[in-house]
Design a binder for these strands. Structure first.
Lengths: 234, 234
DNA sequence: GGAAATTTGTGCGTATGTATC
DNA sequence: AGATACATACGCACAAATTTC
């Protein structure tokens, strides 16, 4: 074995190369035709490879959240969704046995930041949307699943109001993951209503454009919420 | 068009179903054989589909960070890496034109949290590792690329020392994305050395097991670092 | 509304790389 | 070291779904 370096340069396969080129074309917008990709056959002749290669490349791009195939119709460019991130995080969580607490710590950190920024940047439309979500949550408070969804939507609305799209994606993904946990919390007697009251307090603070107060009310809300979860677990 | 509901249930294709089943098997550990998957031919006969379907399914799983194919050898189970997350985030960033500032806000939030926890939880081994990284960074301070890598490694080491694997993945991904930005900051005269001094201060605070001090020193470090970037941009 | 054209979905054969005896 | 077995990489043909005229 005379090899000085045993880093084996993985020979790049066609499908991987094609996928990377296609990704660049999509991100640059150079391949687009009102959002529709050329047919697999066209791409195959364009790249001088078989349709098999194109299809396998598209599978990679599909999982990157960049394209979507429709049988008998064509392939379309899509944007990655928060669910792409949450799916990925879920795999980490399962493989590494990550605890609810560890996830909650991240949620805590990100949401406090988002709330603070939202207090400064939220538009009236954003605030009205949050109010509408809170009203709807109150109306649906006995339909637990629906209520939990609206609860999460409220938090995501705050994140979006921060104007930081990436932050919103993170928070949305984590909300999706914590939905089960939040649901358990809501089942603690009295906590369902308490959560709604706290949402209103947060909203009031946001309307006052008071970052400190907004952060404080959000912190209290999250702490109680976390406490609920622990109770229902024990 | 008598359709009351025009939600068209996308008929699920074989390759997607097979991918999902395989993913579950991998996550449950039920398909594993010392980390090696059955051959494509075996899987094909097992699922009663063609090898093409299996291959396309594996492409999906590959992009999910769960498997890796080796030509002429076989397919192996892998764990998703932080680079899978950073790749995904990069797509969001490009598509949504997310600013460096928005990314930095998230980094700020997560790293302060990680530092605080690390002050309580870091093992002596963790701390020695950080010291080693700082020493090496000082030695390599004139090799900018290498220095920046070591800089990021230091921050990731803190994140890992928090014991929160998911938090560490987030921070590692964001570090990867901000590497270019951090590099620009290091080029500001005097800031290269300043950064190393600040790393030592953070390390000292961690060794003292003082969460407040650790958070403060990290906050100062990140603020200066951000300021550097702005200067070099203008 | 139906036939033709187009597109993606699926199956199988061949080429090439890797490990093993 | 070479031949053999077995793995993935690649190409082509046909089926099924969708759109179009």
């Amino acid at each position: 074995m005379p090899a000085l370096i045993d880093i084996k340069l993985q020979k790049v396969n066609y499908y991987e190369q094609v996928a990377d080129i296609l990704e660049d074309s999509i991100l640059d917008g150079s391949l687009v035709e009102n959002g529709k990709l050329p047919s697999e056959a066209d791409l195959a002749s364009k790249f001088n490879v078989s349709r098999t290669i194109i299809r396998e490349s598209l599978k990679l791009l599909k999982e990157r959240g960049l394209v979507q195939m429709k049988t008998g119709n064509g392939s379309y460019i899509t944007r990655p969704e928060a669910s792409t991130v949450s799916g990925l995080l879920n795999r980490f969580i399962k493989l590494d046995n990550i605890s609810d607490n560890d996830i909650y710590v991240i949620r805590y950190s990100l949401e406090l930041t988002a709330t603070r920024i939202a207090a400064e940047k939220a538009s009236d439309t954003d605030l009205d949307k949050m109010e509408e979500l809170t009203d709807e949550m109150e109306r649906q408070k006995d339909d637990i699943d629906r209520r939990v969804l609206l609860d999460c939507d409220f938090h995501v609305a705050i994140a979006r109001a921060s104007g930081n799209v990436l932050l919103a994606v993170f928070i949305e993904s984590i909300s999706e993951i914590l939905r089960k946990v939040i649901r358990r919390g809501v089942l603690v007697p009295g906590r369902n209503e308490d959560g709604i009251v706290r949402h209103r307090k947060i909203l009031t603070a946001l309307r006052k454009r008071d970052p400190d107060l907004a952060e404080t009310t959000m912190r209290e809300h999250l702490e109680v919420s976390w406490d609920n979860m622990l109770r229902n677990k024990a």
